[in-house]
């Protein structure tokens, strides 16, 4: 049996966190986005995963340009979100799973990756917003967190191929873990958006639909573009699709799409939520 039950892929726009803080989920502007989480809630209620392994990018809460890791894996007993400059700090802590974190670290290093390891780290809206979306309310989160940060801020960024390979290595590590925990993998950020420059407001629905239609059946199609191709196609923050590419790599079983919601725009972003099921491959 696969230890990884599926993958959840979602935008992490800070404005979503603001909308949650203000209770705007039923507001006409926000409702089409939040409604995309109904199938995710049902899936999580059925599967009851124990652990969430989250591929995301930090936007300047835990990491600054003084030390910018290409890949960083959290191995803390607990993680917290804090004020990122606009006064919102989500209160619920994120319990960690240091033993699984260190197992993943051991295995990905054995697979020739060289991550930074973090026994103490804050997680920003790129983790906090997806958790609030998946487990709304005030109850303690029912999953333990293993955060994996990918540099999408300062070029050169890791290549899509490298991110996909990292995800595969993490997936193999999870499947080789001796515990009984069920794991769900997250990829957060995207889809197309660009916040800065004369091209601010750039959205590319054609590229987004290409990613959405290929994510489950043919993720390697997304590897044909290098990081600067993706910046040109999807915008300088649309390159956060690297987190999706890594997370998809971790799903090594039989993968099928259970739900997809593409809603444009949320803030300056083409927002999307995708739920993929990962089940054991049946050999003929």
């Amino acid at each position: 049996m696969s230890q990884i039950c599926g993958g959840i892929f979602t935008s992490h726009v800070p404005g979503i966190g603001n909308a949650i803080a203000k209770g705007l989920q039923q507001d006409p502007y926000w409702k089409p986005f939040f409604d995309g989480f109904a199938p995710v809630h049902k899936f999580l209620a059925e599967e009851k995963p124990d652990v969430a392994v989250v591929f995301y990018n930090d936007h300047g809460l835990n990491f600054f340009l003084d030390k910018m890791p290409t890949f960083a894996i959290g191995a803390a007993p607990e993680y917290k979100h804090e004020d990122e400059g606009w006064g919102i700090a989500f209160e619920r802590p994120y319990p960690g799973h240091p033993d699984l974190s260190w197992h993943i670290i051991e295995q990905v290093v054995a697979s020739e990756f060289d991550p930074v390891t973090c026994q103490s780290m804050l997680v920003d809206h790129a983790v906090a917003v997806p958790f609030e979306l998946c487990w709304p309310g005030s109850d303690a989160f029912p999953v333990k967190l293993v955060p994996i940060a990918i540099n999408t801020v300062q070029h050169p960024l890791p290549s899509p191929k490298r991110c996909h390979e990292l995800g595969k290595a993490v997936g193999r590590a999870i499947e080789s873990w001796g515990g009984e925990e069920k794991v769900v993998v997250f990829g957060t950020g995207g889809l197309s958006h660009q916040l800065e420059g004369e091209r601010a407001g750039h959205i590319n629905t054609d590229y987004d639909k290409f990613c959405l239609s290929n994510l489950a059946p043919d993720p390697e199609a997304l590897l044909q573009h290098d990081t600067l191709d993706i910046v040109e196609l999807a915008g300088s923050q649309g390159v956060e699709i690297l987190n999706w590419i890594a997370a998809r790599g971790a799903l090594g079983g039989k993968v099928r799409e259970l739900a997809s919601n593409y809603h444009v725009p949320i803030s300056n972003t083409a927002a999307a939520t995708v739920l993929l099921e990962n089940s054991e491959k049946v050999l003929a």
Partner: peptide, 17 residues
């Protein structure tokens, strides 16, 4: 000007949407 919403839900979870 790009506004759109496209939603797909598979049978397994259809009644949730």
């Amino acid at each position: 000007s790009h506004a759109m919403t496209e939603t797909h839900v598979a049978d397994r979870l259809g009644e949730a949407a």
